[in-house]
Nucleic acid binder design. Sequence first.
DNA 1: GCCGTTTTCGGCCCGACTGTTTTCAGTCG
Length: 567
Amino acid sequence: MRNRELAIIFSKIADAFELKGELPFKILAYRKVARILEDLTEDIEIIWKKGDLRKIPGVGEGIAKKIDEYLHTGEMRKYEETMRDIPEGLLSLLSIQGVGAKTLKLAHRELKVNNKADLARVLNDGSLSMLPGMGDKKVENIKKGLEIFSIEEKRISIGVALPLVEEIINWMGKSEISNISPAGSLRRMKETIGDIDILVAGERGVEVIEHFTKFPRVERILAKGSTKGSIMVREGHQIDLRVVPLDCYGAALQYFTGSKAHNIKLRAIARKRGLKLSEYGVFRGGKKIAGAKEEDVYASLGIPWIPPELREDRGEIEFVSDGKELPDIINYDELKGDLHIHSNYSDGSNSIRELAKYAKKMGYEYIAITDHSRSDSYAGGIGKKKLLEQAKEIEKVENEVGIKILKGIELKIKKDGELDFPDSVLKNLDIVIGAIHTFPKEIDMTPALISACKNPWVDVIAHPTGRLISRRAGYKVNIEKLIKAAKDTHTFLEINCYPDRLDLSDINATRAKESGVKLTLGSDAHNIGMLNSIRFGIGVARRAWCSKDDIINTSKEPWKLLKHSKK
DNA sequence: GCCGTTTTCGGCCCGACTGTTTTCAGTCG
């Protein structure tokens, strides 16, 4: 799949155009096609070979030619040309919150800002605030943005890392290996991943790594030995692969999965028992007593196997050491439906029928269509009239496809707590998800959220903190108060599964669970491919020690649990 | 750049918010 590769190229062209002050609608066209390629479920090369490039929405004559050129030659003249006079590291600064094209262009032209270090310099020495239109507050804002950016800069979203690793695992299947698994924070399903680690069991290390370095999208080979290979793919991510003999595989998997803190505690336990734990196995004296299987490694230390998502040293080792049984955390196949989906009635790109069919294929028994409400106009929010039309279509599709479809809305909660529809409208729906998308930074949104919880028809609060991982911190909210209000009002809180949100986070979901608040999982899908994002949210739920009973859409009829069941 | 059509041009999302202004520009979603 070279979809993402192309998406990045077009998105970079769009960024560069913005800096150069190109026509706004040209920029928009590039952005649009980048986004569509990113979300496209089919392989662009297959579409290309069929001669169907122009059938992709947003791809016209010009862009089709550029894709064609790139897939033929591996190069795109327009891209090379556009990038020629843009210093490396300049464009990435656009993703800093508070830094847009105009600001960056100004700083670049007037102060020779070419990268992050330059930006930090002009922020601190006061020269940026001297430029026209730049005041102290703007500078302060950008400083904060740069802080968030710096922390997360080198980490990859799990939404990018996991599909990439799956592709590599698929590729490695063509070589002589007996076992393969992601390791590291990816296997623990952390929301962002530092280094991508893959572990392989096999005897012929040299050949395995040779094959690894021939992965079709390799940009650079960083290391190539008999036990470790390291590559950089075209999107700029580094991937390490290690090969170990089969009889060490379990110990190595345990070791490379981490977390570091978890491993340190395990080693301490081993030592107390007169054992030694390393990536090669568990040893008593010189004798190896475990190593082939992860289960055996844990068992040899007198504790049961711990799911990777729980290995964060958040009390899991003490828990099992006390002889207590870990909760039976939710499995990746236990969801019966998705409760947060957008259709083409608002800003989704698939019809209700397409969504329903795909959901059915995923094995779901029900879905909820929850388009944006009228005042979220940037997202094509819908009013009463369209809601009625949609209800009719839902009934029709429900019968045709044979899957239960809840009529829902993602209801805008305004900053004063006012809701976008009156009760008379909300009442007639099956599910209402309250959400905040726009907010003034300084205002505490807790009262607005609590007031929404108190509404008799708001069933769920979507992405309760509003954060966008590595981009913005979210609105001001006292999460404990919100959880309490949710508990008191019988409102559910969502784990939004969109990889850049994952909101509630694992930590907040744990808090909710411990307070007895039930959760919903919603993909927030805007097209059928994104329905698969649900697994990232299940990862969060697992990291939050949630069992099936904590998540309402593991039940066959979750609507019976909603406030709407009383209508 | 794309796209639809009253079909080869003209529209393409725009409102809220913020910080800078003194009526508006930049950023965000």
